[in-house]
Design a binder for these strands. Structure first.
Length: 890
DNA sequence: CGATCCCGCCACATT
DNA sequence: AATGTGGCGGGATCG
C-alpha cells in the first residue's frame, strides 16, 4: 500500500504519506486523514501547484489515495485509536517532513481547501452532468466520502442539496442514484412555479421596496414571505423516494431549504438574493422572535447550500450594497426561463384562450399546477395532514384568518401579517408535508383562477373556530365558490337570479341523465368535517340551469385563463382580507372577481331544484341553496369535452347561446343564470368534467349538518347522480355550500352573496361545523375562483385529508373545468378511483400528483376510470360510502 | 470584527 | 443496539 501511495503521492505529497504511515500514523492517521490528501496538495502548492491544480490532482488521485488510506486506517486503526494523537492531521507529519512546523501549519489545508464547495466540485467531477440514460450511476456515500477524504457527514450536505434539485436520488441506505442535470431545468421550473406561488408576491413586494425598505419592511417581508411560503410548495420530495415512510426528518431543512432558496432566486426579478433576506424568509416561524441564534444557524445552512449551488454553477456570490452596507448575496446564474412554465401562465392568464377543452383540457392549468407540485409534493403524506390540520386550525384561529390575510396583509397591514406569519410558520412546519399537497391545491386553485375559492378556504376556517383554516378551505371553498359565483355573477351581470327561476326546471333535467350516476360523484369527508358530493350531472338539469356547456366551458376556461396567477393572488389577498375584513370587502372583491373573471364558472350553480328547489331558494338556512353546478367546462369542448361535450351540448341548449367564445358574454349570461340558480340552490352541483360525464354534487346547503341527511334524501328524489352524505359525517359538518347559502346573505343577489358565499360557507355552515367541500372534479369555478393562492396551502391540507383517496379519485377526474382545480380535493372523484395513477405506492405521489394533476389527469377519462377502480381499494370508508352509494358505473 | 463555514456532537431514524 | 442521517451551533478561519 505504501508503495502505492508513494508512487502516486510522490508527486503531490511525497513524503508525508509515508512518514505518516510509518512513524506518525498515530497522530496523523486519524480517520480524517483522508483530508490529509488535501493537505498534501497544499504542500505541493507552495511550490508549483496552484490551488486548482491541487484540487485537480486531488480529485484525480483522490480515489486511489483515499482507498489506500482507508485501508491504512483500517490497518492502523488500532494504533490510531490507542494513540490517536491526531495532530493536526497529517500536517504535522508533513511538517516533519518538510521540517518546519510553520510550513506545516501553512500547509495545512486551508479552510478553503476543505470547503464544502470544493468538496462538492470534486463530488460533481466524479459524475457526468448528463449521464447516458442507459447507465445508472449509483453513488455510495461511504465510497465517495472515502475517496474524497471527508467525513460522510459532509457528503450528506452535498447530496441533500443535490437531491433537492433531483440531481440525485436516494435509492437505499447509503446509496444514491446519480441522475445528472437532465431534469434540472424541469426541476427548476417546478420550483419556480412553486416559488411564485409561495414567494411570488413577496419577492415582488420586496424587490420593489426592497432595498430601501428593507429595514422597514424587513419584518413585513418576512411575514409575507412566511405567509407566502406557506409551505405548501416545498415539498419536493422527490419522486423517487421509495420510502415514503421516512420522510419525517428528511424532508426537512436542508433539502427543503435548498429548494426554497432556489425558489427565491427563480422568483426574484433581480435574481439576486441576499443571505439575510433568504434566511428571514426561510425562518418560518416567528419573524419577530427570530432569535439571533436561529437566524445565525439559518445563515450557516444557507452557506452550505450556497456552496453546493455555487459548485453547480447555479449561483455565484456577490455583494449587494444597501443602505446599511454591503451584504452578502448570491446571484442566480443558472437557467432562468423554462418553457413549461409559460404555459401555465398562459393558462392562467385571463386572456388566454378558453380552454381548449379537450385534452389540454384538462384544463391544463390545473394540471400543470398539479404537475409541478406533484413532484414536490409527493413526499408529503396525507396522514400528516390531519395533524397539520389541527395545528393549522389552531394557528389560524389565533390570528384571525391569518393565511388569507397574509396576502392581504401584504397589501394592507402588517399586523395581520405577522399573525398570519406566525400561523403560517406553524402550519408550515407541521404541515409542510401536507402543504405540498396543499400547494398543489393552491396551485390548482390559482390556476383555476378562482379567487373566491381560495378565499373561501381561508375564510372558512375562520368561522368561528379556530380551525377553519386551512384544511377545509380548499374543499369547502369549492362549494363555496360555486355558490359564490352565482352570487358574484349575479351582482354583475345578473343580480337577478330570481329572474331565472328556471332553475327548477333544470333540476328536472337532471333527472334526465342517469348516466351521470354511473359516474357518480363521491363524497369525501376528509375528516369528519368535510364531505364532498359528486354526482354525475344531470346534464339536463344542468342545462336548464346552465348555459350550454360550451359556454360554461368557456367561462371556466376564461375564468381560469382570466385569472392570472397574479390576479389570483391578488384576489386571494382580497379574499384573505375578507375573512378578516368585513364583508364589505368581500363583496367588492367578489364583484371584482366576478367582473373580471366572470367567475361564472360556477355558473352552474343551479339550484337543484329538483330536490328542493323551493327550499333552496327560499330557505336560507336550509342547505345549500345553491347547487353548484359544475359542469365540465370544456372550453372547446372538443375532446375533453368529449365526455362532457355531450352534456355541454345539451347544456348549451338550455344554456344560453352564449357559447360564444367570449367569456364575458357568456359568463354574464351564465352568471345570470347562475344567479338565478343561486337562489335556488339547494344543492350544489358539480359537474365533473368530461370524463366523468359528469359529476354532480349536490349539497344541500341547508341541511347543513343535519341537513346532510336530508340531502341524501333529496337525491333520491332527484335522481341526481349522487349525493353522498354520510349522515354521521354530515352531521358534523355543515355543508359549505349551504352554509353560504344559509347565511343571511343568501337571498341577496350581489355582494352579499358573494361575500356570503365564500365566507359564509365556512362560517355559517360551519357554524355547525365543518365546511363541506365539494370537490368535484369539475368545476366551473375556475373563473370564479378567486385566488386561492394564499391559503391554498392551508386549504390544501384539508384537501389532503381527503386526498389520498380523493386524490386518486380526483386524479381520475378530469377536470376540465378550472373549477376542479380549485378543489382538487374535492375532486376525489369518487367515481372511479382511477386506478392507474393511484397505486398504493403511487399514492403518495399519486396523491399529490393525482391530486394536482387531477385536473390534468382528468384529461384522461380513462385515468379516472382507473382511478375509480383503485379508489375502492384505497378508498377510505368515506369513499366506500360514496362508492356504494354512487356506485358509479363507468 | 463581521463573514464564512468547518467540524463533529448528538438526536432521531432505520436497520 | 448498531448504523444511517442530518440538525445544529461552537468556534476557527478568512478578509
Amino acid at each position: 500500500e505504501n508503495i502505492f501511495d508513494r508512487s502516486r503521492m510522490a508527486p503531490k505529497t511525497p513524503i508525508k504519506n509515508e512518514p505518516v504511515d510509518l512513524s506518525y500514523q498515530k497522530g496523523c492517521t486519524p480517520e480524517r486523514n483522508p483530508i490529509t490528501p488535501v493537505k498534501l496538495v497544499d504542500r505541493p502548492q507552495p511550490d508549483p501547484w496552484t490551488p486548482t491544480a491541487n484540487l485537480k490532482m486531488l480529485v484525480s488521485a483522490a480515489s486511489p489515495d483515499m482507498r489506500d488510506r482507508e485501508k491504512k486506517k483500517e490497518l492502523f486503526r488500532p494504533i490510531e485509536n490507542s494513540e490517536q494523537s491526531d495532530t493536526p492531521d497529517s500536517l504535522q507529519c508533513d511538517m516533519v517532513d518538510d521540517s518546519t512546523a510553520d510550513e506545516f501549519e501553512k500547509q495545512r489545508p486551508s479552510r478553503k481547501q476543505k470547503s464544502l464547495g470544493l468538496l462538492c466540485q470534486k463530488f460533481l467531477a466524479r459524475y457526468p452532468s448528463y449521464p447516458l440514460s442507459t447507465e445508472k450511476t449509483t453513488i455510495s456515500l461511504d465510497e465517495v466520502a472515502s475517496v474524497l477524504g471527508v467525513e460522510r457527514r459532509r457528503i450528506y450536505d452535498i447530496v441533500n442539496v443535490l437531491e433537492s434539485l433531483h440531481l440525485v436520488s436516494r435509492v437505499a441506505k447509503n446509496q444514491y442514484c446519480w441522475h445528472g442535470r437532465h431534469n434540472l431545468s424541469q426541476t427548476l421550473q417546478t420550483l419556480q412555479e412553486a416559488g411564485e406561488l409561495q414567494y411570488g408576491e413577496l419577492m415582488t413586494f420586496f424587490q420593489h421596496k426592497e432595498q430601501d425598505m428593507e429595514y422597514k419592511f424587513g419584518e413585513r417581508k418576512k411575514e409575507t414571505i412566511t405567509d407566502s411560503q406557506d409551505r405548501a410548495l416545498l415539498d419536493f420530495s422527490e419522486p423517487d423516494c421509495p420510502s415514503a415512510s421516512a420522510n419525517s426528518r428528511k424532508d426537512k431543512s436542508l433539502r427543503i431549504m435548498s429548494q426554497k432558496f432556489v425558489m427565491l432566486f427563480l422568483v426574484s426579478k433581480t435574481k439576486i438574493v441576499t443571505l439575510d433576506i433568504a434566511a428571514k424568509i426561510l425562518i418560518e416561524e416567528t419573524q419577530d422572535t427570530v432569535d439571533h441564534s436561529k437566524f445565525k444557524t439559518k445563515v450557516r445552512r444557507l452557506y452550505d447550500i450556497a456552496n453546493v449551488l455555487t459548485s453547480l454553477g447555479l449561483i455565484k456570490k456577490v455583494h449587494v450594497t444597501e443602505e446599511r452596507g454591503r451584504k452578502p448575496a448570491f446571484k442566480w446564474i443558472g437557467p432562468v426561463e423554462f418553457p413549461g412554465k409559460t404555459d401555465e401562465l398562459k393558462g392562467r392568464s385571463p386572456t388566454s384562450d378558453p380552454l381548449p377543452g379537450t385534452q389540454r383540457g384538462a384544463r391544463a392549468p390545473y394540471k400543470f399546477c398539479a404537475m409541478g407540485k406533484q413532484r414536490f409534493t409527493r413526499h408529503v403524506s396525507f396522514n400528516s395532514t390531519q395533524p397539520c390540520e389541527g395545528t393549522r386550525r389552531k394557528v389560524s384561529s389565533e390570528p384571525n384568518s391569518p393565511h388569507q390575510e397574509r396576502q392581504a396583509c401584504i397589501v394592507n397591514s402588517d399586523k395581520h401579517c405577522s399573525k398570519m406569519i406566525n400561523l403560517a410558520a406553524v402550519c408550515r412546519q407541521k404541515i409542510e408535508e401536507d402543504t405540498s399537497k396543499a400547494c398543489a391545491t393552491e396551485t390548482i386553485l390559482n390556476s383555476a383562477g378562482n379567487p373566491s375559492i381560495t378565499s373561501t378556504l381561508s375564510l372558512l376556517p375562520i368561522p368561528g373556530d379556530s380551525d377553519f383554516c386551512v384544511n377545509p378551505l380548499p374543499q369547502a371553498i369549492f362549494p363555496v365558490v360555486q355558490a359564490d359565483v352565482p352570487n358574484l355573477l349575479l351582482p354583475h351581470s345578473i343580480s337577478s337570479q330570481a329572474p331565472h327561476p328556471s332553475t327548477p326546471a333544470a333540476s328536472k333535467t337532471e333527472n334526465g341523465n342517469p348516466t351521470l350516476f354511473p359516474n357518480q360523484p363521491f363524497l369525501c369527508f376528509p375528516s369528519s368535517s368535510l364531505f364532498m358530493l359528486c354526482g354525475g350531472l344531470q346534464e339536463d338539469s344542468l342545462r336548464e340551469t346552465l348555459p350550454t356547456t360550451g359556454d360554461v366551458g368557456n367561462w371556466s376556461a376564461e375564468a381560469q385563463a382570466a385569472v392570472p396567477p397574479a390576479a389570483c393572488q391578488k384576489r386571494n389577498s382580497h379574499k384573505c382580507a375578507w375573512p378578516s375584513a368585513p364583508v364589505d370587502n368581500e363583496e367588492p372583491a367578489a364583484k371584482k372577481q366576478t367582473m373580471e373573471l366572470n367567475d361564472v364558472p360556477l355558473s352552474l350553480i343551479v339550484p337543484k331544484k329538483p330536490f328542493e328547489s323551493p327550499k333552496a331558494e327560499s330557505s336560507p338556512g336550509s342547505g345549500c341553496k345553491s347547487a353548484v353546478y359544475l359542469e365540465a367546462f370544456h372550453p372547446d369542448g372538443p375532446e375533453a369535452t368529449d365526455q362532457e361535450c355531450l352534456d355541454s351540448q345539451e347544456q348549451e341548449k338550455w344554456s344560453h347561446n352564449n357559447n360564444s367564445d367570449e367569456p364575458f358574454p357568456g359568463n354574464e349570461h351564465i352568471s345570470k343564470e347562475n344567479a338565478n340558480q343561486p337562489l335556488l340552490p339547494q344543492y350544489l352541483y358539480v359537474q365533473p368534467t368530461a370524463g366523468l360525464s359528469s359529476f354532480n354534487f349536490l349539497l344541500s346547503a341547508n341541511q347543513a349538518p343535519g341537513a346532510i341527511s336530508l340531502a341524501a334524501s333529496p337525491l333520491p328524489s332527484l335522481s341526481i347522480p349522487c349525493v353522498m352524505v354520510p349522515s354521521a359525517a354530515l352531521a358534523s359538518f355543515p355543508l359549505v355550500c349551504s352554509s353560504a347559502i344559509t347565511s343571511p346573505l343568501s337571498p341577496v343577489p350581489d355582494g352579499s352573496f358573494s361575500a356570503a358565499t365564500s365566507m359564509n360557507f365556512s362560517m355559517s355552515g360551519l357554524a355547525s361545523t365543518t365546511p363541506v367541500f365539494i370537490g368535484t372534479t369539475t368545476m366551473v369555478t375556475p373563473k370564479v375562483s378567486p385566488t386561492p393562492s394564499v391559503d391554498p396551502q392551508q386549504p390544501s391540507h384539508s384537501t389532503l385529508h381527503l386526498s389520498p383517496e380523493l386524490a386518486r379519485s380526483c386524479g381520475a377526474v378530469k377536470l376540465d373545468s378550472p373549477v376542479c382545480m380549485g378543489h382538487p380535493v374535492t375532486l376525489l372523484k369518487l367515481q372511479q378511483p382511477s386506478s392507474a395513477p393511484l397505486t398504493p405506492k403511487s399514492i403518495r405521489p399519486a396523491r399529490h400528483e393525482a391530486f394536482f394533476k387531477t385536473p390534468g389527469s382528468l384529461g384522461n377519462p380513462v385515468a379516472w376510470k382507473k382511478n375509480e377502480g383503485n379508489q375502492p381499494r384505497s378508498a377510505s370508508s368515506v369513499q366506500r360510502r360514496l362508492e356504494i352509494s354512487s356506485s358509479s358505473p363507468d
